[in-house]
């Protein structure tokens, strides 16, 4: 564990807590994309399939449970909570998740660390699901970014949520650089490239977020 990865995990945790805080306290999910939340639930469900078979550390298991629990409860709130669901603007959240999930699944079958299609085994299934979750996580924010461009006034908590979500993966990139130079044979091209793509997708959001912070004006993304 290094400082970049710990900071990344804490930033990721904070992003989830900010969103849960918004939804749980003011009972509103205005401006939040349910599609992105559902994609994140799929990301964690496919990423942590091994939560009961492979034990790494109490920290690792605890964080996995927190991410699984929070992502599914956010989806539950937005779908079924009688007050929260009223503030969900489904007309603005029109991104079709399947146009993201299918290519990620096909890509995971073609490009993963195993490359051997012949041994259809449990570990191959785990590899494909894990790789799928990496690719899906890289693009899961797209429905949310599209929705931000449509909703004119982005409230602070939503802006902070997206900012923290992007920052966590940027910190992970620093973690990968650090581990590459400090650990033998630490090479994970698939993780690195999808993590880089993921962070680059936030580039314009980061720019406008920084501008709004610097000029102390309301965050607005150009349509």
């Amino acid at each position: 564990m290094n400082i970049f990865r710990l900071a990344g995990d804490m930033t990721h945790l904070l992003s989830v807590l900010v969103l849960l805080l918004k939804i749980h306290t003011i009972k509103s999910c205005a401006g939040i994309s349910l599609k992105t939340q559902e994609l994140y639930a799929v990301v964690f469900a496919t990423r942590y399939l091994d939560i009961f078979t492979s034990y790494i550390s109490p920290y690792n298991t605890m964080m996995k449970l927190i991410f699984l629990g929070s992502s599914f409860s956010i989806v539950w709130y937005m779908r079924y909570h009688k007050i929260v669901r009223r503030s969900y603007d489904k007309d603005q959240d029109t991104f079709r998740p399947y146009i993201l999930m299918l290519p990620c699944l096909i890509l995971a079958l073609l490009i993963n660390e195993k490359f051997t299609f012949k041994e259809i085994s449990t570990s191959f299934f785990l590899f494909v699901m894990w790789t799928f979750s990496l690719y899906l996580e890289a693009v899961a924010i797209l429905p949310q970014l599209v929705m931000l461009q449509r909703t004119r006034n982005i409230d602070n908590l939503t802006g902070q949520y997206v900012f923290l979500l992007g920052a966590y993966r940027a910190l992970y990139i620093l973690n990968w650089i650090y581990r590459y130079f400090t650990e033998e044979h630490f090479v994970h091209w698939i993780t690195w490239i999808s993590g880089l793509v993921q962070t680059l997708l936030y580039a314009d959001f980061f720019y406008y977020y920084f501008q709004s912070w610097k000029n102390n004006v309301k965050l607005q993304l150009p349509a």
Partner: peptide, 10 residues
């Protein structure tokens, strides 16, 4: 045990 793709990261 199953060979784990997911290294120790979340």
């Amino acid at each position: 045990p199953l060979q784990q793709p997911m290294h120790d990261e979340l």
